[in-house]
């Protein structure tokens, strides 16, 4: 049976020769279908790089990446039409408005849901006629989230979409994500270093360190490890704090 995402022995380097820096070093990861997996890791641990490899934007040096059983580099169109992606900052053309963006994206996605797009825009208060270069970061992120959800993707990739947002907007975006998660069997991979996010949305947590997934399981499983030394000490403290938060929330 094919998992939505199946990664084996993924290796990725930036640069070459003596300046080569290995970012992903034999990474293995299988996502549980329909679950929200939070990819935790410190800044520079390779979370964004992993997502870009999954999107076919970067080419791994070695390893096997399968999304819906297919290689995203070879079956680019087929795979990417089933994926929604929200980057850490809006990276569309600055002269575009949200309306332009949705009109431009629509022909790329056969399952583009214009009604859903309108609803999301209304719910998130996306400014339709403002150019991206004139939008605030929060407005831009809302538009990107709408663009990612409108094609009704089976896999949603989130690359620290809440970082740097003011608390109100952050809550709005987070709420949008949470509502999107309610919708059926959508598999989500959310890269973040914020434990609060993980505590609110995660079904499972994968901890990325030194280019490898060192822990992968439910939040409780990850925190319940007997030898937490494998988790960075700082992160372990944060994880523990998050567990407390979860208890409080519960």
């Amino acid at each position: 049976m094919n998992h939505v995402m199946d990664i084996e022995g993924l290796v990725f380097d930036f640069g070459w020769g003596p300046r080569k820096k290995r970012v992903l070093d034999g990474l293995d990861l299988k996502l549980q279908d329909g679950a929200v997996t939070v990819l935790l890791g410190q800044n520079g641990s390779g979370k964004s790089t992993l997502l870009r490899v999954l999107l076919g934007v970067l080419r791994p040096r070695a390893g096997r990446v399968r999304l819906f059983g297919k290689d995203p580099l070879r079956a680019h169109r087929e795979v990417l039409q089933r994926i929604g992606y929200v980057p850490d900052v809006p990276d569309v053309y600055p002269w575009m408005t949200a309306k332009d963006l949705f009109a431009f994206l629509q022909p790329h996605y056969p399952r583009w849901n214009a009604t859903l797009c309108s609803e999301l825009c209304e719910r998130l208060a996306v400014p339709m006629r403002t150019k991206f270069k004139a939008m605030s970061r929060g407005q831009g992120m809302k538009a990107m989230l709408t663009a990612a959800l409108a094609p009704e993707p089976e896999l949603l990739l989130l690359d620290e979409p809440f970082a740097g947002l003011d608390p109100l907007v952050r809550e709005q975006v987070l709420q949008g994500v949470v509502e999107a998660l309610r919708d059926g069997e959508r598999t989500v991979l959310c890269a973040t270093h914020e434990l609060e996010i993980a505590s609110r949305i995660a079904d499972r947590v994968a901890v990325l360190q030194d280019g490898k997934v060192v822990k992968h399981g439910s939040l409780a499983e990850v925190l319940g490890e007997e030898e937490p030394a494998q988790v960075p000490s700082g992160l372990h403290r944060v994880l523990a704090a998050a567990a407390n938060t979860q208890e409080v929330l519960a």
Partner: peptide, 19 residues
Amino acid sequence: RAEFGSKDDQFVRRLPGAL
């Protein structure tokens, strides 16, 4: 050059089959 208007040209590269 215009593809690099924002951060980089990854927007067009991650659109499904858009190249």
